[in-house]
Design a binder for these strands. Sequence first.
DNA 1: CATGAATGAGAGTTCATTCAT
DNA 2: GATGAATGAACTCTCATTCAT
Lengths: 191, 191, 191, 191
Amino acid sequence: MGAKGEKKKELILNTSRDLFIKYGFKNVTMKDIVEKCEISRGGLYLYFQSTSEIFEEILKNEPYFTCRNLRKIVKKDSSISEILGSYLEEQKREILTLYDLKYAKYEYYMSGSNKGSENILKTRFEEEADALSDLIKEGIDRGEFVNDDSVIAAKNILYVCEGLKIASLTSVVSEETVNEQLSYMWGGLLP
Amino acid sequence: MGAKGEKKKELILNTSRDLFIKYGFKNVTMKDIVEKCEISRGGLYLYFQSTSEIFEEILKNEPYFTCRNLRKIVKKDSSISEILGSYLEEQKREILTLYDLKYAKYEYYMSGSNKGSENILKTRFEEEADALSDLIKEGIDRGEFVNDDSVIAAKNILYVCEGLKIASLTSVVSEETVNEQLSYMWGGLLP
Amino acid sequence: MGAKGEKKKELILNTSRDLFIKYGFKNVTMKDIVEKCEISRGGLYLYFQSTSEIFEEILKNEPYFTCRNLRKIVKKDSSISEILGSYLEEQKREILTLYDLKYAKYEYYMSGSNKGSENILKTRFEEEADALSDLIKEGIDRGEFVNDDSVIAAKNILYVCEGLKIASLTSVVSEETVNEQLSYMWGGLLP
Amino acid sequence: MGAKGEKKKELILNTSRDLFIKYGFKNVTMKDIVEKCEISRGGLYLYFQSTSEIFEEILKNEPYFTCRNLRKIVKKDSSISEILGSYLEEQKREILTLYDLKYAKYEYYMSGSNKGSENILKTRFEEEADALSDLIKEGIDRGEFVNDDSVIAAKNILYVCEGLKIASLTSVVSEETVNEQLSYMWGGLLP
DNA sequence: CATGAATGAGAGTTCATTCAT
DNA sequence: GATGAATGAACTCTCATTCAT
């Protein structure tokens, strides 16, 4: 596939992404994508065989924050509290963002369309739990935090965020509610 | 509708419930239901116009635990801790149960099939948060718990449970993990 | 399926038969049948899942002459020669008929569309060979024919007829040629 | 077309031939050929416009035995019986060979894909009948054979062989069956 | 009330064929 | 000459929904 093919693939992925954000996973068909991209039926099938395949590709390309890559971009002399604060800010942004892929993502993994392919949702959760646990552990070592088990505390933060994300999809979650919850968890870490 | 009609409706609801548990929401069609019920196509449409309508009805009939109705069934002289303990046990059971409607329920609200109808997921969450908050408040008043804001603490418990439920659907959650999280939250309430 | 359903099935089979005779097997699509029958797409699929299924059904219903059922309809006191003569006349008619199913039939079995279903072409050939062999044997016993092996002679007649049928499909076979061949074989049986 | 072009054409023809032998005529598409040859779509269309065109070309190039070219390769002083014997051996080999073009060849002429082009099957049959008839006639003249009409006898042999070939495609034909039939015809020629 | 045959819109998928590069 | 991305027509198949009986 030449540069032109890459561009077309890019077009398909970007356009589909918009559709998935707007309509979720199951409500988007190959036909919808063909029409929105203004390409031919056959043209789409040159690059992708199904909406699942397209969606997987989009998920792979989707940038995502972790505390690990967060540490690389914050100031060298930042305290652990500062880093965790930034991380929770990012989570908050994700929870409150109305239009992104999280809707389609949950739907995708729930409707069983991910048969036979790696479960990115699970993998990322585990990576995230590891990284966050390390961060909290360091905070404890430095005396910034007090906690008996950094792994459980890390998972607790992630489960609350998951809960908030889900709640934001199926009903409405105010910024205030998110702030309250994040503060509450924060409180559980302070001396 | 006579008694005969009621019976048919019952049949449809029970049979569909099995299908929804097994295949989720979107993967069940009116055709599937007709075939599994062994009734006529027209017969189904006499009672329900769509799978959404059937699903809504099932959700309405679905029994669910809340701390309020829990208080009615526990011993009069139970401590608040005992009641909350029972409640969390019930949540744990729900999280770890593989085959029930929670899968289809999330899918239903996520795929936007609930257009124009009351969002039961949201309503119940709010009711639950209220009841749980009252319970915790009473626990604080009685000196069993220590906490600054019973509403936030209540929501925290519910968000963690939501997060665990979601995680149990998209990947795997061990009983140990659930125990850890519930203990962790419990710890946040103790003096 | 009620009487109405049977009628519809009949309509589909008769219409498809015409199409198969005219265009062969592979050139007829489910769409063609739907259009020629003037029924709906879904309507056709209620009765048949594929052109193969329709074709098989047609073949099953197709009347066919064998010497066995020929014996039942000829006069009681006919000589074996007379019966064989009638049989060869029938074969001749089949060979020279331009528009019937034989075209589609060979195509069907040749294009491998009969995967997993009984090979009627083969079964009938064998039945036919048996019956014809019996007939010749009786002719030999009665002194009408002279031959060393009635089975081989029977097969010989059938193979020549097959050869003529094929030739009549891929090129042109004159009535004279058929007469010559039938006479030639006849000669091989006479004292 | 240069030498390079000739080579490409050769490649296309040889590769397609394999495909036709394996899958028959109708089941091979231009796409299949392009992929198996590992050439470009456009590249194929430079040389051939359709699978029919390719198939015709293959048939033209296909070597085939006739009694005429057989006479050239047998010993000068062979008896006619010996020549006919060799010829029938060759036919037998053709009938029993599972994987060659005969399958696709019948399919091709039967599915009407040879519209507007010369019918090689027919031409060759006629050539063959002529040559075989001459051979038998010579045998009669030399006193090796006894027969009233060499043309009819020749055609008889060919029709039986055709019948056997068809039977070998749609069902199964044992070597024994072929031997029996060839002997039977042979018997019809002997004094 | 109840039936189930019938409809037709729409999704998926494949390929012959073209044409700008 | 050669390429291969792109097109679009054609076909298969499924379901929600209706309606005569």
